[in-house]
Design a protein around this nucleic acid. Structure first.
Lengths: 198, 198
DNA sequence: GTCTATAATGAGATAGAC
DNA sequence: GTCTATCTCATTATAGAC
């Protein structure tokens, strides 16, 4: 059997991400992380420079995945409703793939932005906004979406609804993310109004 | 001029709330609060038992206001769309009145729930959910709202969209909260779809 | 009601043996 | 790669003078 470099490293990131997500980065101590892994806190520093380096790696890989998926959606040339749905699906898949990182980002961006090394989070946020605005504005231009509400406001309402689902939605066989994605798109696009023909 | 007891106390709570909201409760030190007020950290303890007592007072008054406003909405006997809109308005007024407390609650509930003294936050969350579910389910029963999406999912999507607006919405003469409230209700109820007669 | 001074603790991080 | 041991510093909180 080949040795597996970085397995312990991954285990540390896993424990760290779980703790960061559940109590916040600032409130999580390196000792708690080490305890969870089953080593002593000093040993963490063989793998990582600092607590912030752990956060950085967790959040970076989340954002990398996110950017990749959003780029794929934007590359498609389809109707607005379809692309909006694809953005929702892409977001929810990232949530599924990086639930802890998502929660860390949602809860602790402001805290992290205090550190210079996390300045890149500002750009990331801007890119996400651009992706949604592109789709929303295309939809308005093609006449599919209404033009009487500011696209930025629409974006922010949808963004928070979609991303914050990380706090409560646990995918299951009964309710996969595809089902939540349908509900989201359907709610945003069609609204709550009952349009059943009777 | 009469002396004004509690003025300094209020100033401390103001500084604390601002700092808690912007960097998180755990990452805010009593020294930073004292600095902001213009006194030394030891002097804070003449007014408060602990840092957590400050958070407690900030969050409690927020929740008290919230419960009061929601109760008023639920006491009305009107149609579902109207009551849903009233819940949105009530929420946004609480956001306007307690922006820092709202942000603290949104970002740090998980952290606070670690402390026994904040156990009451669980109940508060449940009460809020009940208020929204009551209105949504009444709307489905009366045929106004569609029945094909789980009310709990609708609630959570709307809740996060509405409450998280505290992070980005700054009321102005041009865009008062009534305007955001209209946009929210209109988006949720009518959807993004362009229904203009042409 | 605020200050000075400090106690008590726990934090992130390091050095070097194993 | 982990442990032992420890450093250094910041943290919450207190005691008592003013």
């Amino acid at each position: 059997m080949a040795r597996e470099p970085g397995v312990r490293r991954e285990a540390i990131l896993d424990s760290a991400a779980t703790l960061f997500a559940s109590k916040g980065v600032a409130a999580t101590t390196v000792r708690q992380i080490a305890d969870d892994v089953g080593i002593l806190s000093g040993s963490l520093y063989h793998h990582f420079d600092s607590k912030e380096s752990m956060v950085d790696e967790i959040v970076s890989s989340f954002l990398k995945d996110l950017q990749h998926r959003y780029a794929q959606v934007l590359a498609q040339e389809t109707d607005a409703r379809r692309r909006l749905h694809d953005l929702v699906v892409a977001s929810l898949k990232v949530v599924e793939e990086h639930p802890h990182a998502t929660e860390i980002y949602q809860n602790d961006v402001n805290y992290l932005l205090q550190f210079d090394r996390f300045g890149y989070l500002r750009n990331a946020g801007r890119q996400v906004q651009n992706a949604w605005l592109t789709v929303i504005e295309a939809g308005i231009a093609e006449g599919t979406f209404r033009a009487d509400v500011d696209p930025k406001i629409l974006y922010r309402l949808m963004r928070d609804a979609v991303w914050l689902s990380v706090r409560w939605f646990k995918p299951s066989a009964d309710h996969p993310i595809s089902s939540l994605a349908e509900d989201c798109t359907s709610l945003f696009v069609d609204g709550l109004t009952n349009r059943a023909k009777n």
